[in-house]
Amino acid sequence: MKNKIKFLLITLGFVFLLASCGSKEIVVEKNDKGLAKVAIQIDGAATPYYAPLYLAKEKGWFEEEGLDVEFYYASASEIVKNVAANNVEFGFPNSDPVVMGRSNNVPVKIIHTTYQEGLGSIIYKNESGISEPKDLKGKTIGITSYGSPNFIQLQVILEQAGLSLDDVSIKIIGTGAIVNALVSDQVDAISFSMLRVYDLEEQGISVGEFRSENYMPTQGNVVITSDQLLKEHPELCQKFTQALNRSIAYLVDNHLDEGIENAITHYAPAAKGNEEKIKKVMENEFLPKLWQSDNTVKNGFGYSDVDRYNDYIALLYKYNLIENKYDAEELVVNLDEGGKK
């Protein structure tokens, strides 16, 4: 059962994709202003944490690069499939299914490692008696789906603790209900986003966590495109990442409040009233750790560390989470001003 679950993640969703990807030349349409019409499919739903993308559009920075950008939303695995099939020009998924998909020759490239660290975390109540990963043995752990990045990360953390999926009970819970499942003791722990720790602490619930970043060299959300689009239209990729980098730089330069307000006003109105909590999260996590790292200081925002990706690929292969080990240079691209490697 364990192996069936693991390899189902990698293979099932990509059968149609690999059969449907053709070599017909990509034609990029233009709007009435002469701007190239491109779409990006974003992981999950609209949230203020996607402020750099939203600000780049509202400030006109995408337009200045000659792009008319539309936003759509889907799960990470769906995004990988749609980008590879050239249904959308760009995607913004968590990196895990991208790394795993490439091991099965899914034709996508990471052109911008936007989040320099992973977002995944196994979260538990401190009263549960859990204090280290081996304590998860015999526990019920909530995940959103077998295809979620957090399920991949859970398996690696279990393996490093000498455990496997056979040592725990997995419960599938919808994104909107998974945090409450922990609160109401329907599960002993959840494998989800570390950002939810802030929500739980705000409710006065004492929780602990095993952050994926402390157990594996993961990356969070990344900008991806298809091999074909990068080859035929590298300038579009460069223009997109340039506008995104300009937006991140603006936010880092003491304009976080503006970014949050813009995101809530135009894209995520349900977050209104939570500005202070969102700002706290972004000041603690996004500014110092996700958008910035030693690598971005040296090489610029969105830099992809090939060695770090190779270490993660090796780890997935070691624990049989991917069937084929490969060189990260097949997956990640750091673009120069011409849109090339």
Rank of each mutant, 00 (worst) to 15 (best):
M282N: 13
V80P: 00
E202P: 03
G118R: 00
N324V: 13
K109A: 10
P149C: 02
N126D: 08
L35Y: 12
V183S: 06
G259F: 04
E65Q: 14
S95F: 04
L9H: 14
P97G: 10
C21H: 12
D327I: 12
E235M: 11
S226H: 06
I141T: 13
I178G: 05
Q153M: 05
T218P: 04
D199M: 06
V106Q: 01
M1F: 03
L251Q: 07
V222I: 10
E29W: 02
P288T: 08
I264C: 04
G120Y: 08
N334P: 08
L163E: 05
I143C: 06
E65W: 08
E213S: 05
S95A: 15
A46Q: 02
N324I: 11
Y215N: 00
Y124F: 14
A249K: 15
Q155R: 14
G91C: 02
Q228A: 07
Y215P: 00
I141F: 12
V80Y: 01
K125N: 06
M100F: 10
D167E: 07
R211C: 04
N214G: 03
G273F: 04
A263G: 03
V223C: 14
I122P: 10
K33W: 05
G174S: 04
V332H: 03
A46T: 00
E329A: 05
N104D: 08
I190E: 04
L9Y: 15
G138A: 11
A271E: 15
L165E: 05
Y146N: 02
E64C: 04
S23I: 09
Y326G: 00
V106S: 00
L321M: 13
E337C: 11
A39R: 15
F210S: 00
E70T: 13
E337I: 15
L236M: 11
I111H: 05
G101Y: 01
F286T: 06
G176R: 12
K279I: 04
M194V: 13
I40N: 05
V28R: 04
V168Q: 11
E29H: 03
G273Y: 06
